[in-house]
Design a protein around this nucleic acid. Sequence first.
RNA 1: GGAGGGAUGACUGAGCGGCCGAAAGUGCUCGCCUGCUAAGCGAGUAGGGGGUUUUAAGCCUCCUCGAGGGUUCAAAUCCCUCUCCCUCCGCCA
Length: 418
Amino acid sequence: MIDVRRLREEPEYRRGIERKRVRDGLLDEVIAADDARRALLTRVEDLRTRQNAASKEIGQSTADERPAKIAVATALKEELAALEPALTAKDATLRDLALQVPNPADASVPDGGEDDGEVLRVVGEPPAEAPPLDHATLAEQLGFVDSERGAEASGSRFAYLMGDAVLVEFALVQWVLGRLVAEGFTPVVPPVLVREHVMEEAGFFPTDRNQVYDLPDDELFLVGTSEVPLSALNRNALLAADALPIRYAGFSTNFRREAGTYGKDTRGIFRVHQFDKLEMYSITAPDESWEEQERILAIEESIIGGLGLPYRVTNIAAGDLGAPAAKKYDIEVWLPSEGRYRELTSCSNYLDFSARRLKTRVRGETGTEFVHTLNGTACAISRTLVFLFEHYQQADGSFAVPDVLQPFTGFSAVEARG
RNA sequence: GGAGGGAUGACUGAGCGGCCGAAAGUGCUCGCCUGCUAAGCGAGUAGGGGGUUUUAAGCCUCCUCGAGGGUUCAAAUCCCUCUCCCUCCGCCA
């Protein structure tokens, strides 16, 4: 959630919001709602002051004086009761409007939309020729993925991951998790079913509600990323300054309905309803989040670079940022069968946007402040496998295991099957 | 799933209709004392919103004692619902 006061007072803040996609007039509606709320708040508080004073007097009066004083207090109580529902309504109106406002884009974020991201660097060379098989075909041939049975059992976009591919998955997890632990991240396997308030506070509701699987009988929701339960780990917390930064490496299965993507990426496991992912989640002091974002980006690059995949880093344009992100880097890896770069990981700085809803604060020298939160993909397994299947496919149809994973798989190649 | 007990500030813990935003202790901050350290002495120390001033501080005020509702002139305190924790029984990987 945004800071309404800063919206009112800081032109820069407002400009940052307007660089994103915002409904016309929304910001002025927020300010008007805030004005209306404050005006009423003054009146209600004045009445409450008088009511509190009247009640207090009763306690100190003699029995004779009481009836008259109680009558006065009762009158004030009734007056207040008539006004309070309006205040509650104005609070709700302000909140509903404020929740629709995205976090301002940072000044270092380029203007524009999907095609206007700034490519910061290109690392590694795309291969000169595409491999003979795309990832989906190779995976079926080697017995890594069974999409047909997946669809039968659970519907389209579900797949069985099988055989040596599973060992490669666990090798990825082991390798990446080891690096994250070395970087000071605390490993966490969080709950993947959460209550509604967790979804709300993590910023996924109401905006992305249609992307989330819902278990109505139990009033629980399946998480689309471990960021959701990780954020709940410090909700309503007032942290000591020396407790920061907090770094979590969350491993979880993720569930996404992928509504609105019919017909896109239907082959293989590029886009599936269920996948495992290692996610980085950091909580920092307000003046340290930009540094942390670079740190997370560097870790992501070292993972993708360590796997030998050619990639590029993009500073996503304002209009293409999600609501909570002030700045986001995407790392896109070359996908040979499509002859273009496709997103593999990303990392975002939310600043205090998410912390404001979560009420995660830090006790500083001068008072308390909302912390900053950041997240970044360490390894989205199934999509990483897609790139590995294509880049490590050999001319004879076999699959070579990346060097860094071999200590964990115990084998260096998977032979082609006839 | 069944039966009880509980949730209070950074932490432990008292309060059980008005004198309570809340004893006491711990921790923390400042000062004193002290070869150093430890101990000791004194003072301070919840969060959030609004107003005023507008650098800040200060001052006024409202809300918050797990969450939400209710009773009352007045609720940490009484009632209801929910969530969580603990103990016992059952079941279970």
